[in-house]
Design a protein around this nucleic acid. Sequence first.
RNA 1: CGGGGUGUAGCGUAGCCCGGUAUCGCGCCACAUUUGGGAUGUGGAGGUCGUAGGUUCGAAUCCUGCCACCCCGACCA
Length: 492
Amino acid sequence: MSKGLPKRSEDYSLWYNELVKRAGLAENSAVRGCMVIKPYGYAIWEKMQRVLDDMFKATGHSNAYFPLFVPKSLFEAEEQNAEGFAKECAVVTHYRLQTDPDKPGKLRVDPNARLEEELIVRPTSEAIIWNTYKGWIQSYRDLPLLINQWANVVRWEMRTRLFLRTAEFLWQEGHTAHATSKEAVEETERMLHVYADFAENFLALPVIRGKKTPNERFAGALDTYCIEGLMQDGKALQAGTSHFLGQNFAQAFDVKFATREGVLEHVWGTSWGVSTRLMGALVMAHSDDEGLVLPPKLAPIQVVIVPIYKGEEQLAQISEKVLALKKQLEAKGISVKYDDRDTERPGFKFAEWELKGVPVRIAIGGRDLENGTAEVARRDTKEKSSQQFDELVNLVPALLDEIQENVFQKALAFREANTTKVDSYEEFKRILDEKPGFVLAHWDGTPETEERIKEETKATIRCIALDSPEEDGVDMVTGQPSKRRVYFARAY
RNA sequence: CGGGGUGUAGCGUAGCCCGGUAUCGCGCCACAUUUGGGAUGUGGAGGUCGUAGGUUCGAAUCCUGCCACCCCGACCA
């Protein structure tokens, strides 16, 4: 492992790419735009999955699995959605290879094996799922239908970046059907708050809960809600979305139910998702020039213990104490790694575990053995202190909680320091260049103005915050009246 | 899809202009000494120079095609 990461301050995007690779989260693959998620990165994703999955179950959802492929005729049934994704769909046209008569040892697509109907590799699953729901829903008694699936999807992106934008990515997609519009809207909002709760309490990423403007809305939805986080370079990142689909998909796929009164009505739908993009958010929100900084609740290894020893006997003495401590901490649900490799020296291990973002490091050496102490180092602040060894079992859990809270507070303070209210377009442009972050400004509500600002400044309206206070003002560009400020930012 | 760039050992690279069988660092393997912040020494292994063709006595180097990846734009979770 070579020393030193690029500096965030010098080249943020190089820093990100290198960090993702060197920390062992992911790497590029032989397939253009597709990444390999490595064991350490996947372990973090698995922790995210576990937490989210529990939250989905707690809100009444069940998991199921639908096919990777969507017949073209189904895909195009909901026109707006189909059009929205058309440009980035991978399409299966053939089902067989054969040996190439012209090139020995090579294969070619069998020209006689063309599919009668092309299959779209799902960019999202509304089509196949709503087609299925038609068969599952007859009566109000079948509602609400609350399903989630964990899956991979493919969107043929021109430009990709590890985790942030890849041609194939992993996600969960919830798809629900309800008897009334009100229930569906409630579901949409409920899941948005689940995401926000997850982002803030597990990712330690403060997020703005809001609604997208019509321009930024999911194709086929009546309303798109989102959570938006701020990265350390001042760019916003959409970390999750929740859509109120109205009856669009129910109409396109003819999903009707009989009400209590025996009247046939179309059901109301929602869909919501978060993806492996959250991994990118995790990296970009908290990490530093030494490597990852993982919030304890998502760290695959929460505590690493490094022995510092001279000779076999001393190592044995240390190991005996450490293994007892490890057992005690594990009994409290803490994941502990005892790094007793004798092929690396302590300094190397310190640097390596810092790169990997392990929240707490305990080092114990000869002097500690004599004094009954250990050195405790926290990753978030880099503070080191000497502690009584026997206290560690009580101290460490509290320290992990403290780190979790501190990482969140730090990100929150950063967001607050980088959220600026502006009232003139000149100031808006100046702030975007001088102090990137969220910019709160008045907007007249028209797509034209939004589009113009986007073209001129590359900043988009990230969302209209759900809790934004009413405030009379005028659009900074057109001077038209506005009832509230919206969040602008340059975004990933 | 437009503009730019790069392909040489696991990784990062020199060599290319000016043709003569590949440089250095990290990593890897062995042994020894080491171990409180990325150890040191000695020895060693590892390369169809992206790929296909062409020019030449001879190609990493010159020419042509192709492929891949990266960066910058337009598009997007």
